[in-house]
Write a protein that binds this DNA or RNA. Structure first.
Length: 111
DNA sequence: CACATGACGAGGG
DNA sequence: ACCCTCGCCATGT
């Protein structure tokens, strides 16, 4: 498994219920600041193989970004079940629900 | 190696 | 706030 892919999987797995992260946010933490679209690739290939909470990943505007209607509805339902409100424009309040991990590094050595 | 793909993002009109 | 265009880059073929 490529390091980037591995990091993305790890990060998404760590998003707590009731919170969301954006593609760009995840890409940056995974070491590719402009690699939002690579996160998409990982989701396409891995969300079934692994049991990732893929529904907690949305775009930078706070919208449900998925194109497929059936999948989009599944995502909205999953979020609502966790208490994340999705409005009539398929958007969530990022100010309220965005997850910002304190540290993604396992060993933090602060001098 | 060249080229296409993609559930994106920033910026301008 | 909406719409469009362009840049992005790890992977797959």
């Amino acid at each position: 498994m490529k390091p980037f892919t591995e990091e993305v999987i790890k990060i998404i797995s760590n998003i707590p219920p009731g919170k969301v992260m954006t593609y760009g946010q995840i890409a940056k933490l995974a070491g590719s600041p402009r690699g939002a679209r690579q996160v998409v690739r990982v989701l396409h290939s891995m969300s079934k193989a692994y049991q990732l909470p893929w529904h907690r990943v949305i775009n930078a505007k706070g919208e449900i970004s998925i194109q497929d209607d059936t999948l989009a509805r599944m995502q909205i339902e999953a979020l609502e079940d966790e208490g994340v409100h999705v409005d009539s424009s398929n958007r969530v309040n990022l100010i309220k629900y965005r997850y910002e991990p304190e540290n993604e590094v396992d060993d933090v050595n602060i001098i």
